[in-house]
Design a protein around this nucleic acid. Structure first.
Lengths: 181, 181
DNA sequence: TTAAACTTTCAGAAATTACTGAAACTTCAG
DNA sequence: CTGAAGTTTCAGTAATTTCTGAAAGTTTAA
């Protein structure tokens, strides 16, 4: 498996960005490779293309599976596992988004909820709870919003996205309708 | 500077989440502490409250400043620098969001743009470019959308957020209006 | 069963990232 | 100026994360 320089630059870039997207370098590279390569790849293909150990590929695939970003296929008369990206680019973006929400927001939300149950014990805690409340409300709104977006069909989401500057106008419209009634 | 257990748990949680939010443990703790503490804190306060070295505080503050999340204040007759969170919770969330977009999306967008300028050299590259195109378009839409949200006033944004399930309906409404005309 | 062909696991090594603390730097009151 | 009170820098060390490769596990064809 030899990569042309353009493809290689994409794969390496995915590696560099990997940690920013929530996984590590090799997992990023693996994911980039799977996306950019039309045919499903075996663990050995990946290990050779990226010059990483077989064991590392196994762990990386596990990680990508935990993000629901790859799927396994089998070919007849062949015992090997073939990996390919799971779903369309759009679906995968949605999954990364959702998964990150779970990892980055949900734990905080739950901590805040717990802390807000207790009575503040002193002046400092009163202030602290106010702030925690603000953060809690913000995160809850964002979470709710994110869920909303996810429950929309890709086409509708796209409409909403493309609406662009129009969103603002539509809200005004809605406001008017509400006020009238 | 001693923290009550509830406040401490919040600060430590911010530390643990730090790396997921884009910075490291101590930077996360520092940020949590500044948010939860009503009065601005000096570098020494922070270093004592979190048991970290003075030098580390300095580096952490620099990092938080690069995210535009802290501001420096001075008190009369006092040469020390006092740090406090910059802006409301909402504004700070917006900044983290924007800053992450810059770090997580913009570089990829620029790489993809470059790669898409060249002609594909073979069949594999044709496929690769298709995929890169899809990713490019997705990221561009998201970026555009994010910019849109950011240009809206916090109140309007909140209205939009609170709209929740209504968004879908509003879009339908808009569609109808367009179709009628 | 057996053994070939594959995958997974995990202890230890390597690489990366974060932290300390001492020295250098800056600022300002006297 | 001088030095006291602060901040920043950065080389070296500590902590954490990632990767390797060998051993253990799994699956299936014969």
């Amino acid at each position: 498996m030899i990569l042309t320089s353009k493809i290689e630059s994409f794969v390496m870039h995915c590696g560099e960005m990997g940690s920013r997207w929530g996984f590590n370098r090799t997992v990023g590279q693996m994911y980039g490779l799977l996306i950019i390569h039309q045919e499903p790849l075996t663990a050995v293909d990946i290990s050779e293309a990226l010059n990483i150990s077989r064991g590392n590929v196994s762990m990386g695939i596990k990680e990508l599976q935990s993000w629901r970003l790859v799927q396994v296929q089998h070919k007849p008369k062949d015992r090997k596992e073939y990996y390919s990206p799971a779903g369309t680019i759009w679906e995968m973006a949605t999954r990364v988004f959702e998964e990150r929400r779970k990892r980055e927001i949900d734990p905080t939300l739950s901590l805040l909820r717990d802390n807000l149950l207790d009575e503040p014990a002193n002046q400092k805690e009163v202030y602290a709870q106010e702030k925690m409340h603000e953060i809690h409300d913000l995160l809850e709104t964002v979470t709710h919003w994110a869920g909303e977006l996810q429950s929309m069909s890709p086409e509708k989401l796209n409409t909403l996205m493309k609406l662009g500057a129009g969103v603002s106008k539509v809200i005004n419209l809605k406001d008017k309708l509400i006020n009238k009634s």
